[in-house]
């Protein structure tokens, strides 16, 4: 069959909502886009462990400590499913990790912001996981089967994390003056970076059209961002806090909230590596990997010895 027919068949499947599976024929660009997106997503889970892990040792109560430990552990688990999903496209995990460490692969810029107070753990859960869920709910219907199935599992846990984050802030919002101030300060610092998580505006986004056609993405950056603003603008009322945007206002005609302009210069700077923590995050990951090298070698050497011994026994 000529390649054109394969392509037609492939696009027909997509148009008919039939999932693409690992052994199916797929255009090289589809494979590459999925590897890029899934591995980037996996890296985000792994790098995302760092800003939150930062507060495990200082969590303010044993209950919060246990919840945070479980949450960060869930993220490691998400990283694991996602690396496995990307591996089904022919990219070994180690190669993906090397690309992260060399700077070739990206991860979500949000994790290049620092967690300065306990309230940041609440703000990350509520705003960052909240923004991530918008994207991930869409991805449960993405066209590549293993990715869509990984997302179903991940979404369940993420919405739990979002509720826990909101609950941290809710307690602070009803606490002492210092706690209320801590809560508002965290919202001020995380709001704009959370909006940036949806990526460039549709008019500026390079990968969007093809990804929509292939149903890797099913909603545009701007649509998802609007959904997020609408959700948070309502939820914040319960906290009695304010979003740091003077232009935030309900638009009765559009039936959506209007909101102010993102600082796109900051957005691109962080993408380019100039965010407050880009350097520390990558260094922490590299260091963990390098310090673990002798451990991985020992485990491999032991596994070989064992296999040899069993062979000898069988012979």
């Amino acid at each position: 069959m000529p390649v054109q027919d394969f392509e037609q068949l492939f696009q027909d499947k997509i148009d008919n909502e039939i999932k693409i599976e690992p052994k199916d024929w797929m255009p090289e660009a589809y494979r590459k886009t999925n590897i890029r997106q899934i591995s980037q997503h996996a890296h985000s889970e792994i790098v995302g462990m760092l800003p939150e892990g930062n507060w495990i040792s200082r969590a303010p109560s044993l209950k919060r400590k246990a919840i945070l430990l479980a949450k960060v552990q869930d993220e490691a688990g998400h990283g694991l499913y996602l690396y496995s999903a990307a591996e089904t496209l022919g990219m070994p995990r180690e190669e993906m990790i090397n690309d992260l460490h060399s700077g070739k692969a990206k991860y979500s810029s949000i994790f290049n912001y620092p967690t300065l107070t306990w309230a940041d753990i609440g703000a990350i859960g509520w705003l960052v996981d909240g923004a991530a869920i918008m994207n991930q709910v869409m991805l449960t219907r993405t066209s590549y089967g293993p990715y869509a199935r990984a997302m179903v599992r991940i979404c369940k846990e993420e919405s739990f994390h979002q509720r826990q984050g909101f609950e941290i802030l809710l307690v602070l919002s009803r606490g002492t003056t210092a706690q209320k101030a801590m809560c508002q300060d965290a919202i001020n610092r995380w709001w704009w970076p959370a909006l940036m998580m949806f990526g460039p505006k549709d008019s500026e986004s390079t990968n969007s059209d093809q990804s929509m056609k292939w149903k890797i993405k099913r909603k545009t950056n701007d649509e998802l961002r609007q959904n997020f603003v609408d959700m948070i603008a309502e939820q914040i009322k319960t906290l009695g806090m304010k979003l740091p945007d003077d232009q935030l206002k309900w638009n009765t005609e559009r039936k959506h909230y209007d909101f102010g302009e993102i600082d796109w210069d900051e957005f691109w700077q962080v993408v380019k590596g100039n965010g407050p923590c880009n350097k520390q995050r990558l260094e922490a990951r590299r260091k963990a990997w390098e310090n673990g090298e002798w451990v991985r070698e020992a485990a491999a050497a032991y596994a070989r010895k064992r296999a040899d011994r069993q062979k000898d026994k069988a012979a």
Partner: peptide, 22 residues
């Protein structure tokens, strides 16, 4: 043990040591 969380030698063991901590 929780100090290892996010810094383990390989992802599976990062999860294991965090689990013990939990």
């Amino acid at each position: 043990n929780a100090e290892w969380c996010g810094h383990g030698p390989v992802l599976e063991q990062d999860i294991a040591i965090t689990n013990i901590s939990l």
